[in-house]
Design a protein around this nucleic acid. Structure first.
Lengths: 247, 247
DNA sequence: GACGACAAGTTGTCTGACAACTCGGAACGG
DNA sequence: CCGTTCCGAGTTGTCAGACAACTTGTCGTC
């Protein structure tokens, strides 16, 4: 069992159980030991264990059946699940390729209308902007632009290669990202993007405009990611209607 | 409090709390009554209430703070959240427009390769197929095709307007959809789609290939949905990295 | 063989208690 | 008067044990 402190017990337990399932120790369809038994083994109370199981149930990984037992769902494990991974790096790494970046460029620039709107600022307010072409195995796959308030992260800090991830840099400044909302649009490559992503002009692309906020709703980061349509199969896990099949 | 039986108590409680928040009764940033107090008011035990709160925390709606209280996150309310709504009808209705369908056509046809693969069947296996153009305020917006095994739903039953939703028809036959996995791709309209969706040939589209499964992993429905890019802003709520900002 | 009652095992919920933590204000020292 | 420390009330997190509700296989009966 992991000894990672600072995180609620049920999340740590859930991590352990998830690892158990993903490692193949618990095959899909298999039945878990009973809750009292499992709680005893993991040295926690049954209630804490139940909280962890509830998390994994919500995640779609486990399925408790009243009176019978708790079973492992053979859920398709998504490689790049949009609703779970926030960072482009993770998405690339998840497909087994080595992530990289080129053409990194950071500067202060006036906010475009939609970016300004996401921040709730007037058009043209100067923002720190970080533009990168993300690569997978040295092949360009995503063109990303990140914006944030210059008081939080100036252009130099944004491009700082030390902490790599902008998310981590924000977290260190007390702005941990809690969630993001992404809207998707199809697009075709104009001359500029075509060159950056090394695709023919007119190629199909998927653009993703994302607003990342902290837990208390402060917009901390806005980004525009342009994906090569042929490089990614962007997937989403969608929960079913489940029960409310009324009327 | 809702009296909907047949559903675990914590889910019903979560529904009630969610309704409370969404109705504006509990404003974003507001603090909930303490757990013992709230449990007393809702006539349930504190443990059940806590389970419900945990659900809404995972959903991003509430934020319990150890030692302080539980607060309402001002989460952006998505109109059409991909990860939550499964049915096209719901998505249309969620934007405030009236959903409809035209050009409904159901028949038995051999499975295309990708559909067959999703079902784990050999290419060309005959499947029930239902093709529809979904409309919003009588304007065509989505071209959908649904496939399922003919033993489960024959073409006539699929097109049956009585129960309207294919999901409901499946649920009545013991195949309640538990989750789906959708992959997205940009596309351009060919002549056939252009005519069906009433857009110029070459217009940008978003295609969504989805595999819907029951809780025990049986693939019950496969569908291909072609969205007009200008009619929908498809959004996804993405959970943040939150805690594991290690190394 | 079919059917029903039963018992063992499991998850769902309840109750009460204590630990861990937050936060504001009182007490104190400068 | 200001800043600091300390404390206590209030809150969420975890624990323990009990019982209710449900599933499933067994066994006896017809």
């Amino acid at each position: 069992m992991s000894t990672n402190a600072r995180r609620s017990l049920r999340h740590r337990l859930a991590d352990d159980l998830r690892a158990l399932v993903l490692s193949g120790e618990l095959a899909p369809g298999a039945q878990l030991p009973s809750e009292p038994e499992l709680a005893r083994r993991m040295r926690v109370s049954r209630s804490s264990l139940r909280s962890a199981i509830a998390l994994l149930e919500e995640e779609g990984l486990l399925r408790p059946v009243h009176g019978s037992g708790t079973y492992v769902n053979d859920r398709p494990l998504l490689r790049d699940d949009l609703s779970r991974n926030l960072s482009g790096t993770e998405m690339i790494a998840a497909t087994g390729r080595t992530p990289g970046a080129r053409l990194t460029e950071a500067r202060l620039e006036p906010a475009p209308p939609d970016v300004a709107a996401a921040f709730g600022l007037p058009d043209g307010t100067p923002l720190s902007a970080l533009r990168r072409v993300r690569t997978a195995d040295d092949q360009p796959v995503i063109d990303t632009t990140d914006w944030c308030r210059p008081e939080v992260l100036d252009p130099v800090a944004m491009a700082d290669p030390v902490d790599g991830s902008v998310y981590r840099a924000l977290a260190e400044r007390g702005l941990a990202i809690h969630h993001g909302v992404a809207t998707m649009r199809p697009a075709v490559a104009d001359a500029r993007i075509a060159e950056r992503l090394e695709v023919p002009e007119g190629s199909l692309l998927l653009t993703l405009f994302q607003t990342d906020s902290t837990a208390d709703g402060v917009v901390a980061l806005v980004s525009l990611e342009i994906y090569r349509a042929d490089a990614f199969l962007i997937s989403v896990y969608r929960r079913g209607p489940g029960d409310d099949a009324s009327a």
